[in-house]
Simulated assay, not measured.
Amino acid sequence: MLTHSFERGVLVLTLDDDPPSGARDVLPRYISDLIHAHRPAPVVVVLSAAATTAVISAVLHAHRMCSRLNVLMSVATPSAATRRAFEAQAVPGGPRLVIHARSDIAVDAAYAAVA
């Protein structure tokens, strides 16, 4: 489900699969706790493939929290449909959610932005 690592000063959260139905409610809290523990480090959320509505919602919740904390956050997913879903659901007028197709580029960009 959710794993995390710290690469070049960037917190990388990886969601490999859709969480089981019982874990969907706690996913935003897990993400939030990790972001709080590692702030002010930038965050990259890596999604393996197409994400469900629950995962997209949890990531957008985390993005709003990162915006309040002034923490840079981006998403990496190879799924074009998921990237479009994030673009469509991002809050207009708020900080832009940066979306990448590759996780290595997302980590490099986050590292460069805060270096």
Rank of each mutant, 00 (worst) to 15 (best):
I99F: 01
C66I: 08
R64D: 14
S48T: 13
G94T: 03
H61T: 14
H100R: 06
A85C: 00
H36N: 10
L47H: 00
G93S: 04
S32K: 08
I105F: 10
P28G: 00
A37G: 02
Q89L: 15
A101V: 12
H38P: 03
H38K: 02
A49E: 14
M65Y: 02
G93K: 02
A101P: 08
S103N: 02
T52L: 06
A90Q: 15
A85G: 02
A58N: 00
R83K: 10
V98D: 12
S67L: 01
Y30W: 14
I35Q: 05
D25C: 01
I56S: 08
V44W: 09
V75P: 08
P28Y: 03
V75I: 08
I99W: 01
I35V: 15
A41S: 15
I56G: 03
S57N: 15
V45T: 09
P92I: 10
I35D: 03
H36F: 11
A51V: 06
A88S: 14
D33H: 05
V75F: 06
A41Y: 03
A49L: 01
V43S: 01
R24K: 12
I56D: 10
A76D: 12
A54M: 08
R83A: 14
F86C: 07
L60R: 05
A50G: 14
P40S: 09
V26Q: 12
A80K: 01
A50D: 15
A58Q: 06
I105M: 12
T52G: 15
T53R: 08
L97H: 04
A88K: 05
I31Q: 00
A85T: 12
P28Q: 02
V98R: 12
A49R: 14
Y30K: 08
I56L: 13
V45W: 10
A81D: 14
I99Q: 07
P28K: 00
A37F: 07
F86S: 03
V46E: 15
P28M: 02
P95E: 14
E87G: 13
I105A: 15
Q89K: 09
G93A: 05
H36Y: 11
A23D: 14
S32N: 11
V91Q: 13
L72M: 07
S103I: 01
V43R: 03
S48L: 09
P78R: 04
A58L: 04
T82A: 10
H61Y: 10
R102K: 11
Q89C: 14
S32C: 09
A23L: 12
G94V: 05
L47P: 02
S48F: 09
P28N: 05
S57V: 08
T53A: 09
A49M: 06
L69W: 13
P78C: 04
H61G: 11
T77W: 04
V44G: 03
V55K: 08
A81S: 13
V71Q: 02
L69H: 12
R24I: 06
T53H: 14
V55Y: 08
M73I: 15
A49P: 00
A58T: 06
V71F: 06
A80H: 01
V75H: 10
H100D: 03
V71R: 05
V46M: 11
A49F: 08
A50Q: 14
V46R: 15
A58K: 05
R68P: 00
V43N: 04
A101L: 05
L27H: 03
S103E: 11
P78N: 00
A49Q: 13
R24Q: 15
H61W: 04
H61C: 04
V75M: 01
P40F: 02
G93D: 07
